[in-house]
Design a protein around this nucleic acid. Structure first.
Lengths: 109, 109
DNA sequence: TTCATGCATCGGAATTATCCGATGAGATGC
DNA sequence: GCATCTCATCGGATAATTCCGATGCATGAA
């Protein structure tokens, strides 16, 4: 993950509909949810939500898979991990004291 | 950090100029940099960069302090930590196996 | 074959973001 | 007082985002 791949990921998450959808998918790992279920949860139109989903997919945060005539969506935790590593990297280089509290709180969960 | 505070933070970082400025401030902790130095690094107009800085400040990612007639900007690592915790929380609840690789890579730095 | 379902994509309208130059406010130096 | 420096804010132009209904394209059922 570099600047060019972190920016689309951040932009994808910087929208209430997309952030909610992504978190919903994370909570539904590893089964995933169909696009229709996500549409219902969003309260938006099917076409509108479809474009949001495309943004998440283009950023690598969501992977989809055909299943009959449904499209099953799954969160890509690897991309989330890489994004967090990218954000944390600058803090940690040469000054671990900045990231230690972060690690302390992360390990508790 | 909840959804309403995470969204402005994500939106603030989802712009090349702001992400670069924030990372530059993180690397310059804890001294900080003046607004003018950040403007020079951005290559943008002073007024344009000032609005970007206001976005970062409003999201709580940057704190500023007067020093003479300069404004010293500093990264707020607490907000970054809270944002990362917010993003990681959903992965970890009930399924530590999703976040373990993340922690493993974070502890190495 | 025919019909219905699930989803992506197109066209267009409304909103928002981004950028710049110009101006204003506060602090410092002469 | 007066000029200068540093930065925030205003107006306005351009570009991007967001949203919806309509359409198209598969898949599965009748």
């Amino acid at each position: 993950m570099n600047l060019d791949s972190a920016l689309p990921a951040l932009a994808a998450l910087a929208h209430p509909t997309r952030l909610e959808a992504f978190r919903l998918l994370v909570r539904n790992e590893p089964e995933g949810l169909s696009t229709g279920e996500l549409v219902d949860a969003s309260g938006l139109t099917q076409s509108t939500f479809s474009t949001h989903l495309a943004v998440l997919a283009k950023a690598g945060l969501v992977k989809s898979e055909k299943q009959g005539r449904q499209q099953i969506q799954r969160a890509n935790i690897d991309t989330l991990r890489e994004l967090m590593l990218f954000l944390a990297k600058d803090c940690c280089q040469g000054r671990a004291e900045l990231c230690e509290p972060l690690l302390a709180e992360l390990t508790c969960c």
